[in-house]
């Protein structure tokens, strides 16, 4: 359902991605593994349209989306959760959710604030709290909840375990599994093998902007540890 081929991207003069190709099939969790600077974040940003690819194609349900603006891609049902959370700290929890809100979508789970508060009980207890007054773990939950308000069919998660205490990471594993059972397709960037192993159906190893291996997580494990 999400298919990337021949993807090339650059920041200014620095060429970051070289002919990347991979896919995430409907209802599965695919993981891009790679160290910092390998190009994982750039890959996700190219898919959502924040970074404009130099070349290559991104197909979402068979439709090319690489030439669209981020808001158009988001409105097709691609959700994006950035690495550094980027909560609107001046807005309350409810207002943050409002920014993400989009009309219900055919073939995607429907989310309401009430349903999200079941998934993230912490958030339900702080609906009027400003984003600035939340802990790192709470912000990470909010950034996912905010994206789900758009009723996406696929969600891109950039290093959701980064900087979180191990107990919160365990909670994150449960959340991603729950999203998968709801029928969402998840594309995940990770460096943390322990974490990736617990959620991934399919894995790709990226190094210096190039694909180095693909398969199940156990199959690519060796390659990842060598990069």
């Amino acid at each position: 359902m999400l298919e990337v081929s021949g993807l090339n991207a650059a920041y200014g003069r620095a060429h970051i991605l070289f002919d990347l190709a991979f896919e995430a099939r409907a209802g599965e969790v695919a993981v891009l593994l790679g160290r910092n600077g390998a190009g994982k974040s750039t890959t996700l940003k190219s898919i959502i349209g924040i970074v404009r690819p130099l070349a290559g194609e991104v197909h979402f349900f068979g439709r090319p989306i690489q030439h669209l603006q981020p808001y158009q891609i988001a409105r097709l049902g691609v959700g994006y959760v950035p690495e550094d959370r980027r909560i609107f700290t001046d807005l309350t929890v409810m207002e943050n959710l409002e920014i993400g809100r989009q009309p219900p979508r055919e073939g995607a789970p429907r989310w309401t604030p009430a349903k999200l508060f079941e998934l993230f009980p912490n958030l339900g207890r702080m609906q009027d709290r400003l984003g600035a007054r939340m802990s790192g773990g709470e912000q990470q939950m909010l950034t996912i909840a905010r994206t789900l308000m758009g009723n996406p069919r696929a969600i891109l998660l950039d290093e959701p375990s980064e900087g979180l205490a191990p107990v919160i990471v365990e909670q994150m594993v449960r959340t991603i599994r729950e999203l998968k059972t709801q029928g969402l397709t998840v594309l995940l960037c990770e460096q943390n093998l322990h974490f990736a192993r617990q959620v991934a159906d399919r894995a790709y190893v990226i190094e210096k902007g190039q694909l180095r291996g693909s398969g199940t997580l156990d199959e690519v494990r060796e390659e990842y540890q060598q990069v």
């Binding site: 790679g34 160290r35 910092n36 390998a38 980064e162 900087g163 460096q191 093998l193 540890q225 990069v227």
Partner: peptide, 11 residues
């Protein structure tokens, strides 16, 4: 302060 944040295991 968090010297290895954002790095791969080997690094």
């Amino acid at each position: 302060d968090e010297p290895t944040a954002g790095m791969a295991p080997r690094e």
